[in-house]
Amino acid sequence: MKSFALTFRRFFRDDGQYLLLLSPLLIFAVVVAIYPLFFSFRISLFDYRLTDPNQTQTFVGLKNYIRAFSDTVVLDSLKTTLIYVFGTVTLELVFGLGLALLLSAEVRIIRMLRSFLIMPMAIPPLVVGLVWKALYNADFGVIPFYMKALGLSVGHGPLAELKLAMLAVILIDLWQWTPLLMVIFLAGLKSLPTEPYEAAVVDGASRWQSFWFITLPLLKPTMLVALLLRTMQSFKVFDTIYATTAGGPGSATTVLNFHIYTVGMTFFDMGYAAALANILLVVIAVLSIIYIMVLERQQF
């Protein structure tokens, strides 16, 4: 106890300057991250409707969380979110790695190609959504036009058919974010040591074998970064859904984040929306921890 008090005092006497110098950053973090987090946790324990003229906040304990787990809309949207995340992340991982391997050579044309491929990332997701909505439109869109020309049935259009809508939104995400994974994997590939490959060639390994037994294992840390980044982003998807399907047709593409938006910004039910947002946060955090544990353990 005594030693603790001592370190505490010394910390403030000796390193007080550090704190002072750190204070702008600390204040910034508190204001933009920590305070909102605590506020959203606090508000999730209350019944608070933003449009209430008296702004009454009634304490209801965990009722909002209990309500969330018995709300079929929430459970359905959670399932939709998982499908979306699984679809986008696996496809992007595969295509990103493929593109990275394909375009890793340092040739002028390939360097140019790479910079062109990165362009979708520079467009705001909302704009991407609007552009694709126009492309997908069953009656005026380009994609259904060629589908019809090929003799395929378009139905209500890719975004309005129950079975196609999810695939259609996943494709948009794939188009926009595969380049990011390509860049990450390219960086990973460039930093790989060359010795193992030389040794493999000497031992008579085929190219496939050296990819499977050397490249992939060595890329694991890169893969972890890519997986984490995309999973988190994918869980939070909102803009593209908002601009293309608004969660439709029916509720086929209502991901959890879009449902939270409806509860918060249409019903103005802030307590419940905060509770749902916190559940999303916990889901992402838990998944991230699992990823890290699994991939760290397997390393070497």
């Binding site: 309005a160 058919e161 129950l162 969660g247 439709g248 047709p249 029916g250 509720s251 086929a252």
Partner: peptide
């Protein structure tokens, strides 16, 4: 949500 769900055959 639900009228649209009916129109596309979900409900």
């Amino acid at each position: 949500t639900y009228v649209n769900a009916y129109l596309v055959g979900q409900e």
